[in-house]
Design a protein around this nucleic acid. Structure first.
Lengths: 340, 340
DNA sequence: TCCCTGTGTGGAAACGTTCCCCTCATGAGC
DNA sequence: GCTCATGAGGGGAACGTTTCCACACAGGGA
């Protein structure tokens, strides 16, 4: 509506002076400063972000690329990121890739075209290729949750290997020997690492795993459900199920319920990633939980350091330890649910 | 990186021609079209959104203003909005207001400055004032969930009055007479309407409510928890609790658990809004659920119609009916959890 | 032959900022 | 009285697009 030109007219100074006042740099007399501020206020002046961005090549925008914001995992990470971003004058734009390479590519192009100042991404796969255009244009990138091969960027992630090992051991301790692992997309490191942790736990106890009990596919609920359903229909015996994330656990639960299995009565269940609100209402699922909000804020802080170049050393790899919360679904004797 | 000028050089045509090809308007020969497309491809040209926006005064951006994206309610609405937006060439930017007027104002200024093409908002309060700047600049607005007084905009919302009436009747049918209502912010219509529905249900059954049993405050979990806690400590008797949304229910549940009350054994609990993933894992909370994703897509469709001016009639008020899902927490005899 | 219409194309003016570069007081130091 | 540093502020180019306008050319109708 009203532009800097009108503010300058009303304040009786030049455009340049208005710009100096508003961006707080250069020499400006107190009288001019007051006049400009008053004029801007009176006209309810709002600077044009696009004009500014065109000139400065900066947008004040930071983007988060995630598979699915409808996931307690990513939505809390998003809050962690946003809170830190806002506190530093940046705004967050969230993009759902739905784990589609094509969607991710389209978003990256859009973000580049929008002169986004930094990107935090849980990439669709392990390949550095899709993310290369960002680095080529010197847009700082921080990875979250998912490692990417040979990609020189900071990353913050959970310890999937040891986490899944802990989770598996929990079920082994309860006497389970035939445990089904409902994994996600093997094109992503979390899935690969969780498999590694699972196998390590079995190996250390001298248990020979049954390959049929390890399934993988997409990170979608329906896919997990279908796979567990198939396991049951093919009569592959198992006494416990492990979900590689909350979607996998939910899918497994659906299939189990459909076939009339009681949890934990007939089949024990545990999974990676907590579903906060669910456990708040009715502590049910035994989980390996990760400090998601913290992961988000760490990621954003590292991104900030890259953006303002206060750090330009080698890529940092921040691994945050998850922890086990035992609830009913795994069938352990639990006295109290020790929530924070 | 590479601009339209470089594309024009490589294609051997003028900038104007490149623009015409890329935006698909005006006369362009087939030869020129092919040359431009090839040059753009080879240079991996990405149009500069800011330059374009500066000129056209449009950004291709649609914004969603919500109190909290970390709420199953709003996150699913956001997906509904985003899916429709993307399908129509728009991108969504999500802004958390945390129910703070100040934050909302800051975001609205930012959005105006960014030439956002449309806004969907669940406003912090019922006043039209904070939203006025958008209309003044002819930025289409659609309200979602929360009605705003005397504000000429389309709205899509749930039927809070009848919804809460249904929910209350459910508890009354189970024999409860002293029901505590844990409400949210009375500066918002959902809270007011839910109170109206609650009182209507009591009145129709000829029950005299106890004012002490109706509490309200913010929409935060901790606040609800504190209020229920106080109710218990002050020894106000009640046999059932009603949460005005999922945060209120969670807060209530926390307080009840802390005081050692079993749900539904000692106290029955039911609430507005489903917590999808929770119920998927372990059907616990009796809820009045709303078609949230649909609400989002409806809202976005209405916004699109306003943006491309295919509809410019009077404000539409779309009220979507919620429905009751009875689960364990209310203490009714439930055989199967009839999820879709 | 002349004019007109339909195509195809390029030049150049915006859009609203930022910021470099210039000018101009003023006053201290010699 | 002169220079020079410093504070204050204006002019105008540039950012990368879109789009208006002018122009050129071909071919058809009078």
């Amino acid at each position: 509506m009203s532009s800097i030109r009108e503010v300058s007219k009303r304040a009786g100074v030049s455009i340049a002076t208005v710009s100096r006042v508003l961006s707080n740099r250069g020499y400006v007399s107190e009288a001019a400063r007051v006049a400009v501020l008053r004029a801007a206020e009176e006209l309810h002046y709002i600077p044009n972000v696009m004009a500014r961005g065109l000139k400065t090549k900066r947008s004040g925008l930071v983007a988060l690329l995630v598979p699915q914001i409808v996931s307690t995992y990513f939505v809390y990470a998003a809050r962690g990121i946003e809170d830190v971003a806002n506190k530093n004058g940046y705004h967050l734009i969230i993009c759902n890739t739905d784990d589609s390479l094509e969607k991710q590519r389209a978003y990256i192009d859009l973000l580049i075209g929008s002169s986004v100042d930094g990107v935090i991404v849980a990439s669709v796969n392990r390949s550095p290729r899709p993310l290369q255009p960002l680095l080529q244009r010197d847009i700082p990138v921080v990875l979250v949750d998912r490692f990417v091969d040979d990609f020189p960027a900071d990353i913050v992630r959970g310890d999937s290997i040891n986490g899944m090992k802990t989770l598996t051991e929990h079920l082994l301790d309860l006497g389970h020997r035939r445990i089904a692992l409902v994994n996600g997309d093997m094109e992503t490191y979390p899935a690969r690492d969780r498999l590694v942790g699972f196998q390590a736990a079995l190996r250390e106890r001298g248990i020979v795993g049954d390959d049929r009990l390890v399934t993988h596919g997409t990170w979608l609920v329906q896919d997990a459900e279908r796979r567990v359903d198939e396991l049951i229909r093919r009569k592959v015996p198992f006494s416990a199920v492990l979900g590689a994330n909350s979607f996998m656990s939910v899918g497994a639960m659906r299939a189990l319920r459909r076939h009339g299995f009681a949890v934990p009565g007939d089949i024990a269940l545990a999974g990676f990633d907590d579903v906060e609100i669910a456990s708040d209402l009715d502590p049910f699922l035994t989980v390996l939980t990760q400090p998601v909000y913290t992961m988000g804020s760490f990621a954003m802080n590292m991104l900030l350091e890259r953006m303002n170049e206060s750090y330009s050393g080698p890529p940092r790899d921040v691994v945050l330890a998850p922890w086990l919360i035992v609830r009913r679904s795994s069938g352990a004797r639990v006295s109290v649910d020790e929530e924070a």
